[in-house]
Write a protein that binds this DNA or RNA. Structure first.
Lengths: 209, 209
DNA sequence: ATCAATCTGTGAAAAGTTTCACAGATAAAA
DNA sequence: TTTTATCTGTGAAACTTTTCACAGATTGAT
């Protein structure tokens, strides 16, 4: 008896969760209207989202932050560790890895991959590193469910395929190329600066007239 | 007499544009169903999107790629140069800058900012660099409309404010923190790994049962 | 020249999402 | 204690977006 949440709702809840975890040390409660200033959404919509959770505690000053964090996490099953891996240990890959160490809790990055065996020997990281041709096996063996791709554009499609064959369920792709897939057992999120630039520039133009 | 496109449509068109520019050297035509494999969308939806453009040329084998690129660009006014800037010249910032040089056409990154004057003197880039405290003035002076933020988390909010005061219309934020704004003259897109991880892991879980 | 296969194009229906209006609740001030 | 201001919670309405069904068009094969 799990009532489903819509995809936009899930995304907004993830953003809100992120904000709350940033704010938890600074304040106790927060109102829906203040929260809306952090998101591209209205207070109405956030309230409606929260109404789909259970056990939310609020008062005239707003929502109890700790309680709301707990409710969102329970509903979304966040906090149950999922194994993740990263492919491509160049500038972006290493930036993500380092930033990750300290910040992403609940996600265990358990493997790094790179095509250059040379690089694998030189790098010093907290996680085990493997050559890229082992992706499929390692993913299967370690039950890795999420992958981050930060390899050069011309390798991204092939690397994605190996992850998919190994059985990952989600991919975040930072390579400047859009990855294609035939299956729909995997959700691919492309993070592409060119696309974002074009989108931003299109909608700001539209808003302004 | 400009018929407005919805935000989801604009975003999909930006993604499609990106794909087409990748594919233009490899093939002449593409069908809506093949395109849909690159996006998290159906062929129906893409066809409907294209029906909102004007001058689209198609045949039984699909859409003419060059023509479609042209139609999307015209409708979205993409290709008209907008000035952009980047703040934070650490690992991510420099990665973006380098990746950018060769790839983002139509956007002139005309300024880089960093808090460390020391760093500004050491770095060798193709674009002029300025200290972070000059953001507001330089943005105004150079008519910069888009900003990329890649500074440490605790500085991002303040840097964003300076860009906004200077008059930018859109911000892409890579700092691992959600930026807040009171005004709605600026569109902020936060690209946050933690949020993406949580979202991915929530929706793949949901899909699988 | 005809047929079969496979595209696109689009109005209408369906589904999904957001907004609104207002009732109810609570905290702080008078 | 009463009032006032300011929250949340939510059903219903409004709006938006996607899906569908099928007509029309084009290509290639026979």
């Amino acid at each position: 008896m799990r009532s489903e949440l819509s995809e936009p709702t899930v995304y907004r809840l993830c953003v809100v969760l992120r904000i709350l975890e940033e704010l938890r040390s600074k304040q106790i409660v927060i109102s829906s209207s203040e929260l809306s200033k952090y998101t591209n959404t209205t207070a109405y919509t956030l309230r409606k989202d929260f109404s789909l959770l259970s056990g939310v505690a609020s008062s005239k000053s707003g929502y109890d932050i700790e309680n709301l964090i707990f409710c969102i996490k329970s509903k979304l099953d966040i906090g149950i560790a999922k194994y993740a891996a990263i492919a491509g240990l160049g500038r972006i890959g290493m930036a993500i890895l380092n930033y990750t160490d300290s910040r992403i809790k609940g996600y265990d990055i358990v493997a790094g991959f790179d095509a250059s065996v040379n690089k694998l020997e030189t790098l010093h990281t907290d996680i085990p590193l493997y050559p890229a041709y082992d992706i499929e096996d390692i993913v299967r063996e370690l039950k890795i469910k999420l992958a981050v791709i930060a390899v050069p554009a011309d390798k991204a499609q092939e690397i994605a395929l190996r992850f998919i064959k190994g059985g990952v369920e989600g991919i975040i792709n930072f390579a400047p190329v859009i990855i294609k897939t035939d299956v729909d057992t995997v959700y691919i999120k492309n993070i592409d600066l060119v696309t974002e630039f074009n989108f931003l520039s299109s909608i700001v133009k539209t808003k302004g007239e």
